[in-house]
Nucleic acid binder design. Structure first.
Lengths: 264, 264
DNA sequence: GCTGTATATCTAGTATACAAGATATATTTG
DNA sequence: CAAATATATCTTGTATACTAGATATACAGC
């Protein structure tokens, strides 16, 4: 270890011991009240939403000073948010020059889709093995809500319910962390999706596919469930080239691909 | 250079336009020289290494002030490093109280192992489809180095080569990003591994298994390659309970598991 | 001696000031 | 008029000072 702590108590009047600071990391310790929502967290969430919804399209300059005024905070917490977003790949920070919304990296898009499919196959299989009746019912409720939103044409709420379904399956399988991983990789895909036009009747289709997956899970037919989920997710393999040509400035080909790129 | 030019010759203050700041995010722009390695980056790497090697065991208090002295920097860049580590789950920051090295979350351990297996099945299959002869040879070289390190008994270098092999397969499959994802999830597993005793003869076994996987890849036998890789990775399903009882303070059961936890 | 309260002192969060570098504009030069 | 140079000004990175909250210790009351 290092340096026994100074301990300069001296002859000062009410010298207390320099405090132990041996508090454990708080498993269930106090301070487990409520998140007061740090300023940086608020800014982070807001900026992230804006980037993903293309409110802030790729290549948009991010001027810290301007944002401090907008949010009414100082640079320090703002910078914290910016750095988090940079680490997630949503912002590009150029050292003494400027910060910009990142272009959508095509390679990551592709890999995220592939990885998601692989991971969801796992969660579905796990869910089939250990799902309880109550969880099945909860998932049915989510699907129902999704259908309601589809009928209303509320795309935003629809996608939210869509996520809830997939997250629920992961949770039912005892693997909620895997859904978190999927979300992490998915940020760029989310931006991509905003550029695509909603396909007619797609939402109703999704509801049907979800139902089929859940039916298979309930019946304990793991292989069926996995196959159905795979088919469902394969629909996400969108034709990237089209959109790359439509909004060339929004994408970047950080192609690590040494071959013409074969979807499989 | 301060100089305060002031340029007081003309009557007009020579007002320049307020600057456009429309610089694009720099695809191949200048500023593409070399990473000067920011201070926060150095601290981040160093702390991360220390945490993963259990030099800083779980529950160790992280005192920012002390570290600023040790590294000779101010709180700002140090804080940046701390926040990054907190986001990765290696540190727990308790708002106005203190920061501590996180306990190893058992659920994440388990999920990381499961996710890795799923993802590597994908990379192996991809590699089988598109690997070039030169890449095969490169992977053979890595295996050979691994054998050398095993013979020398240099565990650290052995594990490094081990990672290189798996990373190489992902790259060969055109999915290098997926290895990055695996690394991200693996931080906790890395810490866990340091707590386990090296098993006698394990290193030589690994070399053999790697060779088998690569052989299958070279022969284009995707199913075999996947099966062999799966078998190889299954060895990582270590008996967690044993170590949880040995170092109870190092782990935390953030069990999201609603059932006795079945490995599958 | 034990329990409950007070408070000194530590912590992370935030604000602000300064430094070093990059770049667009203005100016100079041919 | 065009190209090269100069420089003002903007950027991010860093240092330091301040604020508010949490907690271990000291102390009072029983």
């Amino acid at each position: 270890m290092t340096t026994s702590p100074s301990t300069a108590q001296g002859a000062l009047p009410k010298s207390r011991k320099p405090r132990a600071r041996n508090a454990p990391p708080a498993p269930g310790t106090a301070a487990r009240t409520q998140k007061p929502a740090k300023n940086s967290e608020i800014v982070y969430q807001d900026l992230k939403r804006a980037i993903i919804t293309i409110d802030l399209p790729p290549a948009t300059p991010i001027v810290e000073k301007e944002l401090t005024k907008r949010y009414g905070i100082s640079r320090t917490p703002l910078r914290e948010a910016v750095l988090r977003l940079a680490e997630e790949g949503l912002l590009d920070v150029v050292p003494k020059s400027g910060t910009f919304v990142s272009r959508i990296p095509l390679s990551r898009l592709r890999e995220a889709i592939i990885a998601r499919r692989a991971l969801e196959e796992v969660t579905v299989r796990a869910a089939t093995r250990r799902t309880s009746q109550s969880e099945i019912m909860g998932l049915r409720a989510i699907i129902l809500r999704q259908k309601e939103m589809a009928d209303l044409g509320d795309e935003e709420a629809f996608h939210q319910a869509d996520d809830a379904f997939h997250a629920g399956i992961a949770a039912a399988g005892g693997l909620p962390g895997i859904w978190q991983m999927i979300l992490q990789m998915r940020v760029h895909v989310d931006r991509y999706r905003r550029l695509t036009l909603p396909q007619e009747g797609r939402m109703q289709f999704v509801v049907g596919e979800h139902t089929a997956v859940l039916d298979a899970i309930e019946e304990g037919e793991a292989d069926d469930a996995v196959r159905l989920m795979k088919t469902h997710l394969d629909k996400l393999t969108l034709d990237i080239e089209v959109f790359r040509d439509l909004w060339p400035a929004y994408f970047i080909v950080d192609a690590d691909l040494h071959e013409p790129l074969t979807f499989f």
